[in-house]
Each structure stands twice: as C-alpha cells, then as structure tokens.
Design a protein around this nucleic acid. Structure first.
Lengths: 333, 333
DNA sequence: TTTGATTAGTCAAGCGCTTGACCAAAATTG
DNA sequence: CAATTTTGGTCAAGCGCTTGACTAATCAAA
C-alpha cells in the first residue's frame, strides 16, 4: 500500500492536517515538527496522491491537447512546443488525436471534462459549431491553435492568406507570370482555402490572370504533389512557376517536373509551404514559407496559462509571422 | 457548479448509490427508475467526475508516456501508434518529454506516480539504473519501447544489430567491398552502438576489413551526414558504398557526394535507416531499412494493457522485423 | 401457507487530501 | 500584570464517487 498523510501523521504524532500544511509549506508548525515531518516523509518515500488532492482543490494541473495527428510533423512540432511550456508551468499534457473528425473531437472534449482538466488546447479540425457549443458549456478555458475561429475564443495562428500571398509575390517579383498552384482541400479553411485565396489575391493585385485550371488540388502529401504537377504540366507546360501549399507537395512537384525532363529551377520554379525537413532533402532544396510551429505551440500554452489564472490577455488573437526561406528552387526570370 | 450524482439522486428521489449503480449498468433498479435516472442525467448534462471515481477505484484509466522528443518524427510516430491503441482501450495518454535526460526521466516517473497512472510506457533514453530502480519501487506496470533492457521489464523493439547487418549485407551482395559508415553516437546503445556492431559483423562475416577511420560519427541529423560524408571522402575516395545509421544522415551523404562531383548511385551507393519520409524526397530516393514505428507503439501499448490487467505475456521481449526498402540509391557493381 | 430466493432499493463508510474554525499555551505589549 | 497577539497545533467536514452490508417487499416454488 502506498504511504499516505495518515502514515506520516501517526509516526510523527500529529494530525494529518498538520502534516498536510507542513508539506505544503504553510508555516503552522514548530521548526522541530517540521523537520521531523519532512524526515519521516522522505524516509517513507511519501508521494502525495494528486488525485485526492485534485478532488478537493478542483485543480488537476493537467491540460488536454486535442490534436489532429501526432504522426504529422507539423502537429508533432506544435505539440512539442506546447509540451515544453506546459512542463515549465508544471502542467501535464493529456494528448488526444482526432484525425480531424468531429465525432472524435466531441468525444474528447467530454472526456477531458470528465478528467477535470484545467484547460484545453484545441489544434484539430475546423472547429465545428458542435465543438464550440460543447466547449462553451463545459466552461473549460480553451485556446485554439493554428486555427482561426469566429468566436471569442482566444487563438494563436498564422495568417495563411498573407503568407501565401507573400510566397506568390516572391515568385512574381522574380519575374514569373504564369504561376500554377497545387492546393490542399478547400474544405480545410486554413491551409486549404486561405492559401488559395492568398494565391489568387497576389495574382489579382499584380494584374495576372487567375486560371482555375491551373489550381490543382492535392492532399498535402508527396504523392499527391506528383500527381498534381503532372496534371498541371499536361494542362499548360508553359508555366514558369508553381506554388505548393505544402512542402511535401512541393517536393512532389519537383520530382514530377524532373521526371518530365524539365529542370528546377531552370525551367520551372517551385515554392512550398511549411519548411518541413523534407524541403532540405530535395534537390534542389525547396524555397518555402517557414511556419513557426514550436512557437505556435508555446505561445498557445502561455496564453492558456494566463486564461486559467484569470489574467487579462493583451490580444485575444495572435498572428505569428512566417519567414521566407530562399533556397534553390526558384530562379529569377 | 457541475452536476453531481447527488443532484440526480435528489431529483429522482433515490439515493446516490442507486444512481451510481444504474449509471454503471449494475442491474439493481426497476425499469422505471432506471429510465428516469438516465433521463434526468441526460437532462442535467451529467458528466461523471473521473477524479472522484479514481480516488475510490484506484484506477485512472490513464497511462503515462515518457518519451525523448515529440518533434522527432521517429518518436512522434511511435507516440501516434501508442495513442491509437490507448484510445481503443479507453486509456488517456499523458505525454512527458525528457530529451533523454536522466533527471527529467526520474522527475516524470515520480510525477506519473503521483498522478496515479495505471501504467507507464518508457520510450526515452538509455534507461539508467536510477530509473529502473525507481520504476520498481513505484510498482507501476511498465513496458519499455524501442529500447532493450537487461531487466525483467517487458519491452518491444527492433534488433538493431541484425537490421544493420541486413543493410550492409545488401550492399555486399551488390558487390560492394569498400563500405564506409556514418554512425550515431555509440553512447546511444540501440541506434548508435548496435548499428555499428551490425556493420562490423557483416563485414567480418564476409571477410572484409573493418577500417575504423571509415566509421564517422554523426548525430542522426542531416547536416551531420553531410559533414561526415565529406570526411569519409577525404579519407578514402575509393569507397563504393556507405551505410548511414539514419535517413537524415543518408540524405546528407547523398548531398555531399553530389557536391563532390560524384554521382549516386553510379559512383557511390548509399543506404539509410528509418524509412523517414525524407528518404522519398531525396534524389535519388534513398534505399533504407524501414522501421515499424507505429507498430512499435501499438504493440507496446497492447502489451502494457495485458500487464495492467494481470494477463500473462507470451513473450516478454518482442522484436519487430524491419523491411528493406529498395530504391534508387544503391547500384549493383 | 410457509420457505427461500429475488428484486429494488437504503445506509454508511471510506478513498487521501485540504481547509475553515476553533483552542490552549506562550510570547508580546502598554 | 492584565490584555492582546502569535504560535502551534486539533477537529471535523467535505470533495464526488463506489461498494459491501443490510432490509423490506415481491414472487416463485414446495
């Protein structure tokens, strides 16, 4: 059996309350009893039962992370950033993966509520109405990560429209006019729709024609990038650049271009999005927009910590800047 | 205030015990009261407080995962595999990252003990004596992941010696005789030392000379692979193949070889280890040993589940087979 | 009709901890 | 030196749930 406060109390000859207070650093005991209590606690190898403690304090010092997919480097890095700060504040992290599925999301929100977590970090799907409603009902402090959300929920994310705009603008600045895009699914607002919007806006602002047939949808994975690029090449082989909504697709594009007997960047320039390690592995190395995943993670955790402690937030919605990583896959025309 | 058993009990006009039993599916109530209880519980939006429940049942339905680094794809995939099975069995996952640091490991074992987790999955550093001792004392069921461990602790991992042997043997079978190695740090037994052992053994068994100067140490990262390869080339440019202890280093090697004006695989063949997505991004694609990370994860969780439930394990140490992925970076001499 | 089993509950204790209220003795102050 | 404050504790309740022991009523069987 595990050793409890009672065991220590009996051995020392005081009540549990005294032991509890001493061990919690409340100065309500003589130097000698204090010393003895610490001694006995150490001897017995006492470890406070946090479950019991939580029951009374109504704090678990645990936060729940609802995330799409841990195997995905992007989310893994976000999670890693979160974990670091959580640990700094002595919070444990319960991680639940949803695959972006609404049913799972709801299930986990409920579960986390039952487990009485002190806060929730939501880095999953599109954050459907049902989730927002449930979250509101449960009244658990929540911060949304990497996802814009209409409501009053605090969030930290990047401006996908703006950053995509920047990528395409870079291409344009380098003299490109015929620019294709390999997009993600537009149902995914952030990295799907918004990145398409940024692309279109950049073209429009520069009086370039938006040709829908030059926007081919992929699923962010490498293979789909290859497929998409092949399609684009078939539709119009005179393009000089392509913007891929993810590095994996960007690398896929490079592969497809090479396979078609063309060269990157001599014939076609490619720019990606994410700054995944994969962008450094390809040949040529992929120019890309670098996302601050780790910072996304830790900022959201810092934010949540404030919310939990009732501190005021200076900003409810934080946009983190990305960085353009210039590498070898884009050339000046 | 959250709704409790008491609230339901009062509203229905029975005692808490009855409500508790009904909600837990224990058939000790009439059809009508059962129905009413469920109704009221739903109306009130009752969610059982698992903390209170845990305090009495002494089960938290939570397992703790102690892992090196979430941002590392390898561990992220292991974690992802674990999470899937944990979720299947309705276990929550508390994740703690240690960076392989002993102090952190000890800290987290203690923390998990305090949080009364039902089991621990250890996928961190070298599992030092101190950890094993602490783990034994805490008496929490534990399974070690991706790490061989002398003790009687159950574990699931791959046979790094054998799999490295296989990689090098493949090179030899393809006619290579002068084979260099880019290793990890030998302090890391599994992916450092053991992979070197496999390399040496394969050379020995085939009457090839082991030349220590042809084993250059990296840190598993891409950059270190480039550096290491440059060193090797400087030491003996007549080698025809190199075995890298990680895909990142393998890709680094390819880059260095190309930069030196040589071709892969025409001049030098390269084989990696991991089957990281990066191996598919490089040009040529990297031949490699594919590790079953996800399976490593879910098998260990399956194992832990059995241990927690007092089931007998058929095997205490499971070795999972890897797979040789033949791609374009190795040629037949 | 009596016995025995079953059904549908109640009661109370307890899981390990915190915390407000109380109290006696010692120490301080005017 | 009496009045007050401080020190060093104790006591009991309670967090929300489970669970063994008990009971009263109903029902089937002999």
């Amino acid at each position: 059996m595990a050793v409890t406060l009672k065991d220590i109390a009996e051995k020392v000859g005081v009540t549990e309350s005294t032991v509890s207070r001493v061990l919690n650093g409340i100065p309500k005991a003589s130097k000698e009893t204090r010393k003895e209590i610490f001694q006995v606690a150490a001897d017995l190898g006492y470890k406070p039962n946090q479950i019991a403690r939580s029951l009374v304090t109504k704090k678990t010092h645990t936060i729940g992370l609802i995330i799409s997919d841990l195997a995905n480097t992007y989310f893994a890095r976000v999670a890693s950033g979160i974990e670091k700060i959580a640990s700094k504040y002595d919070y444990s992290l319960i991680i639940s993966t949803t695959g972006g599925d609404e049913i799972e999301e709801l299930k986990y929100i409920n579960l986390l509520k039952e487990k009485q977590v002190d806060g929730i970090l939501f880095a999953s799907g599109r954050m459907p109405k049902s989730c927002r409603k449930l979250l509101r009902e449960t009244e658990i402090p929540t911060v949304v990560v990497a996802r814009e959300v209409e409501e009053e929920l605090p969030s930290v994310h990047i401006d996908n429209v703006k950053e995509s705009y920047r990528a395409v603008k870079y291409l344009i600045n380098n003299g490109h006019q015929k620019i294709a895009m390999i997009s993600g699914n537009a149902n995914d607002k952030e990295s799907g729709l918004y990145r398409i919007q940024g692309y279109k806006q950049a073209l429009n602002d520069n009086k370039l024609e938006v040709r829908e047939e030059l926007i081919v949808e992929g699923d962010f994975k490498l293979q789909s990038g290859i497929k998409a690029m092949e399609k684009i090449l078939k539709r119009d082989s005179s393009i000089t650049a392509v913007f891929a909504a993810s590095d994996e697709m960007g690398v896929g594009a490079i592969k497809a271009i090479k396979k078609a007997g063309l060269k990157v960047p001599e014939d076609i320039s490619v720019i990606g999005f994410d700054n995944n390690i994969i962008s450094l592995a390809s040949d040529p190395e992929l120019t890309t927009i670098s996302q601050p995943e780790a910072e996304l993670g830790w900022r959201s955790m810092e934010m949540l910590y404030k919310v939990i402690n009732g501190e005021e937030l200076e900003e409810k919605k934080i946009f983190l800047p990305c960085e353009l990583k210039k590498r070898g896959s884009v050339r000046k025309l």
